[in-house]
Amino acid sequence: MTAMTEIKVGESLEQMQMPPVTRLDLIKYAGASGDFNPIHTIDEEATNAGLPGIIAHGMWTMGNLAKLFTPYVEDGFIEDYAIRFRNMVFIDDVLTLQAVLYKEEENKREFKVAVVNQKGQEVVNGTVVFRMYEVGMAG
């Protein structure tokens, strides 16, 4: 793993491809988050809501994406995490987590982040501002 301080503007954190989305993923997330909206777990309910099938909780996808930053918890913390939910995520979708550094300012590192499906569509996108605990040479 590259240290956060060595990542340059325009470079990415190592992207991560997830195994295909399963119903069990969403059942587990429903239980862990307390979001039991049945369009995420029960086919009939999703169909009744006019959906082609059950869809992932947007917050499940957003939660997964944050894991790109977990290896850096000793270097700093996520100060801002802003996401727009762009497209639905279905069972068997293969998602890739991405983060690109686009701005560096004192102790802040700003990343453009996205989750992309197997068709190349961004299902969520947004920004992460990662605040570093030490300013390095600036002191």
């Binding site: 997830m18 993923d25 587990k28 997330y29 239980g31 862990a32 988050s33 499940w60 939660g63 997964n64 944050a66 894991k67 977990t70 290896p71 918890v73």
Partner: peptide, 11 residues
């Protein structure tokens, strides 16, 4: 713990 596991991030 349950939440971290559910988002595939049991760090």
């Amino acid at each position: 713990k349950k939440f971290a596991e559910a988002i595939n991030d049991p760090a």
